[in-house]
Design a protein around this nucleic acid. Structure first.
Lengths: 137, 137
DNA sequence: ATATTTTTGCAATAATGTTGCAAGTTTTAA
DNA sequence: TTAAAACTTGCAACATTATTGCAAAAATAT
């Protein structure tokens, strides 16, 4: 409980029940979470709007980052400590298992650089690999 | 007009006004299109449902492919000819311009392979690079 | 302890996506 | 060329997902 509050305070956020609980979920989860997962795991204890706003706040503060998926849902996952407010450095590859449908942050696999056509200037890059994960193998 | 019908027929689809028009849009567009773009550019001529179903059909037939984005919308773009029904081979990098917000298919830039941790077996990979495009440079 | 600031939940609203079905269109085949 | 068969469209209804304003409640600062 103490470390959660610390993470929140360090980012200038009030420590509230919903924020603590949602942060808890992320710290307990290996993979990424969707908004629906959070509603399910909090058993409706917090209003849908509160969950939206909490996720948005966490993203803004660099506590979590977003992962786009092909089925039009956004996943959220914890950022490593080198994320700062407004500056995400989640330059690692994400892995989606086609069997268990979980999403993993492969923190040790960095997104490789690619050579772009003339005139295109890169800023950020994200990469998603799908396949079979270590648990479903 | 003739080539549009050919593309549709080749994929076993009836040639209808909405399909021809929407295919038209894709052939005329350098970047990717969202559902909303299509509604805008057809000026409400076709029902929202028809647009959804047309896009879905085109994806199934391998005429277009989907690109996930961070803002929770799906973009669609033409597949190159090596896409077949049920088998997408859009293994190229997508580029999102942070100024004009257009999405480009960089058909000549292939998604590089990465070395995954033990136990993870890759199947497909997608990569999105954001930055400044050739027009906004 | 109390004032100030921030967060939450409710209600209302908007945007987005899906399904069944009757009417209309396209294709098939005689 | 036309009639039957097959497929597609649009409407209506509904489901899901997301956003905003505002008053009440909670957390922080003094």
């Amino acid at each position: 409980m103490i470390q959660h509050a610390d993470i929140l305070k360090r980012n200038g956020l009030s420590v509230t029940a919903s924020r603590t609980k949602i942060l808890d979920l992320f710290l307990d989860t290996a993979g990424a979470l969707a908004h629906a997962d959070i509603e399910k795991n909090t058993d409706g204890a917090y209003d849908r709007v509160t969950v939206y706003r909490t996720l948005q706040t966490f993203v803004e503060k660099g506590i979590i980052h977003q992962i786009p998926t092909i089925d039009n849902s956004i996943l959220y996952a914890l950022c490593k400590q080198d994320c700062e407010e407004g500056h995400h450095h989640d330059n690692h590859v994400h892995f989606v298992c086609i069997q268990c449908v979980k999403t993993f942050c492969l923190d040790d696999v960095l997104v490789p650089e690619v050579k772009l056509p003339k005139g295109f200037k890169p800023n950020e890059a994200s990469m998603i690999v799908s396949g079979v994960c270590i648990d479903c193998k």
